[in-house]
Design a protein around this nucleic acid. Sequence first.
DNA 1: GTGTGGCATTGACGCAGATCAAAGGGGTGC
DNA 2: GCACCCCTTTGATCTGCGTCAATGCCACAC
Lengths: 252, 252
Amino acid sequence: MHANVKQNVVPLITPGLKVACSQCNLRELCLPFGLDDHDMARLDNLIGGGRKVKRGHHLYRAGDAFESIFAVRSGFFKTDVLTEDGRDQVTGFQMAGEILGMDGISTEHHTCNAVALEDSEVCLIPFTELELLSSEIHSLQHHLHKVMSREIVRDHGVMMLLGTMRAEERLAAFLLNLSQRFAARGYSHSEFHLRMTREEIGSYLGLKLETVSRAFSRFQEEGLISVQQKHVRILDLPKLKGLLAPPDGRIA
Amino acid sequence: MHANVKQNVVPLITPGLKVACSQCNLRELCLPFGLDDHDMARLDNLIGGGRKVKRGHHLYRAGDAFESIFAVRSGFFKTDVLTEDGRDQVTGFQMAGEILGMDGISTEHHTCNAVALEDSEVCLIPFTELELLSSEIHSLQHHLHKVMSREIVRDHGVMMLLGTMRAEERLAAFLLNLSQRFAARGYSHSEFHLRMTREEIGSYLGLKLETVSRAFSRFQEEGLISVQQKHVRILDLPKLKGLLAPPDGRIA
DNA sequence: GTGTGGCATTGACGCAGATCAAAGGGGTGC
DNA sequence: GCACCCCTTTGATCTGCGTCAATGCCACAC
């Protein structure tokens, strides 16, 4: 079933791509967060270099042996899981500064697929060596734990979304989440380009692509956003946030 | 909003409850997995003792300062998150040998509630000290990472369930999951007592309690299980598993 | 520039599960 | 041991989203 594992993965490590963490403008979002110069240099030293992943190609596939986690340097990824019966579920979208691949630690094999949604670059962080270093640098160890914990908390948020929200609430939550993450990276919080298709959004949100499309159209009719294909502009942030409150609007 | 944080938490640590990991029949499922006698003794040494949590009481609440993770020694817990607008979502059920509280690492505060569904006992594992020890014992460090990663993978499974499955599939997956976990603990895989209400099952599965009840009844009509209130017996395991395959039964 | 195929939009219709409602049963607490 | 309340079951109806279908648009390759 996984005979073709890795076929699409660019196997080359391209040291020329390597950018020192200390020079990286994502260091405040990424793994080096909180390290002093000395420790950051040690982390730099173990990071194996960069890897380019072209749009549509896999960074890793479910079943691949787990060796490294990855930090997104640039670009955009999705992760998805699929069952033997062919259903698949997008479990997340990752942008610059975010960490990919932690699903693989538990079984020594990746349990989901990571696919680049645009031409992207990642830093490759060999996990065994990261553990070794993190046992020497306490703040690195703690930050790694925080990153993993954050992933768990994020997943709980998605479970809440999938378990309790209606279609328009889900899409509003999704847009607000993207907006906030773009803003954290210095991009506009009100205007951005969706890297994923309606179908991928729908898979992530537990909706069909038509429902996503209709919700976009409805938001536009109501003046909350303007949307043209993959270009989105948020016009009325407060009202969009208001969609997350339930109709009865009870006081907590 | 969290003025009453901890009001229900039994603040006592009861050292009399302490059972050495080496004496615990859950050690193969729990954190000490893979440790040799010497290292297990060191882990024992940091575990702060046990805590009893009576049915219906909180082990911790969203907002509580994070200090420890917990290993369930006996009993049964649920974790849930709630939004400011009053919706809540059960994010998991935890039984003996499973670890609770890792959601709190990322923000230093717990982000969900943990409630005992029956009178229970947990081991209290101070996290700072665990990090310290795990930087000295590599296999402990690695196993901790595996436990966290397993939680991430488990959450992906729930996302898959919530995003793609229909009501009866969800309930079948839930029952099979429970069955397998009971079996791993030496209990019957075919007959067990549900500790949670239909409403809690529904919340976990993204369904209303009536839908859960109807699905139970349907399974019983079809001879897959027998169910009387909280007592469940699985009568036709293969057929129950078969429910997880989609109707079209396509070949992967 | 032009062709092509994937992606998006929109409409009509159906259904799975939510909602509303009512009654019965059993476990829990006193 | 008893009573009460919560939990569960079951029915009737409603509705949000899925499904099916057709058309249109845009990005990209050549």
